[in-house]
Design a protein around this nucleic acid. Sequence first.
DNA 1: GACCAGGCACATC
DNA 2: GATGTGCATGGT
Length: 220
Amino acid sequence: MTRSRNSPHQQILSDIYKRLFGYFGPQEWWPGDSPFEIAVGTILTQNTSWRNVEKVIQNLKHEKYLSAKKLHEMPHNKLASFIKSVGYFNVKAKRLKNFLSFLSNHYQGSMKRMATAGTVLLRENLLDVNGIGPETADSILLYALERPVFVIDAYTKRVLRRHGIVSDDVTYHEMQELLQNNLPEDVQLFNEYHALFVMVGKHYCKPKPRCDSCPLEPLL
DNA sequence: GACCAGGCACATC
DNA sequence: GATGTGCATGGT
């Protein structure tokens, strides 16, 4: 996927964005008061509705456990029990701890220190943490650290696929290149665009029975 | 009760 | 490399 000045994708991706933004307005992502809270949220929300995650985060906050140090020190069973309602709680407790160990070992548990790292290397290092895959790494980079990285997820693929822009066997990396190479490199744009994919995917471009009066229909 | 939700790692072929 | 499976709660 190469950057080309007059790729037909530039026009269509720009049109889709305008249509979605015009229809839904600003999404104000990522909901969260700090980069650390956002990073925790990216792990907890893996294959899980945000609604469930929100409650757990509020609970952690209320109990004053939402800090790298506190969570890092918390025993596995206690953490798992705390995050029970997000589902996959044993897996996610472990993944969260893996991230906290990474943060502690490399950046003294500080998101600010982590934010001094370069995007490309940091992405590779995050991907080496067991339990952090491409979407989680990119969500941390974009939403917690404000790096110009386009986050791909199941909604993004479903919307692009439904509208014939990508094929069914397209990879994460291919979709990310498609978007990054055909849009201006702009953190706020990437932030909003991904959130809009989620919005339209959630409420209109549903798994079945296909589109439900999709706001993109007259456009494409 | 089936289906879905802001994935990822791992086993097996 | 590609395909399949476990992880688990909560809302529709």
